[in-house]
Amino acid sequence: MIALALQLAFLLLTLAVLLGLVRLVRGPTVLDRILAFDLIATSIVGMIALLSVKWRTPLYLELVLLFSLLGFVSTVAFVFHLHRTLPARPSAREEPPSGAAPAPSPPP
């Protein structure tokens, strides 16, 4: 019962990591990539928790804490770095609606 559920959950989380990688490759802006990275870190934390269930040991809890800390701190570091270096787009807040064209070209 629980072995089946574990395998299914592993499959779902692997799919999540793959989709996150798709966004990481395609993402038009840096922020998309940061979000994708954050989600991948979350799924890895979930996988560690699943391993901990599989082998019935509480020893991996430190690993869960460590990975969640790592994911959050790296997101914060990226955001603070980009806060200083990413150039703001100059156009005003009220840009004219751009019709049906989705996702304009990314900033360089």
Binding site: T29, L35, T75, V79, L86, A88, R89, S91, P97
Partner: peptide
């Protein structure tokens, strides 16, 4: 920790997108 930091990270990303005025998708 997880429950507090995931929304905070998403908020930071949104804040940066708002501050830098990144291109937004507009509905037709």
């Amino acid at each position: 920790f997880q429950v507090t930091t995931i929304p905070a990270a998403a908020h930071l990303v949104g804040l940066l997108a708002w501050q830098k005025n990144l291109p937004r998708w507009r509905a037709p």
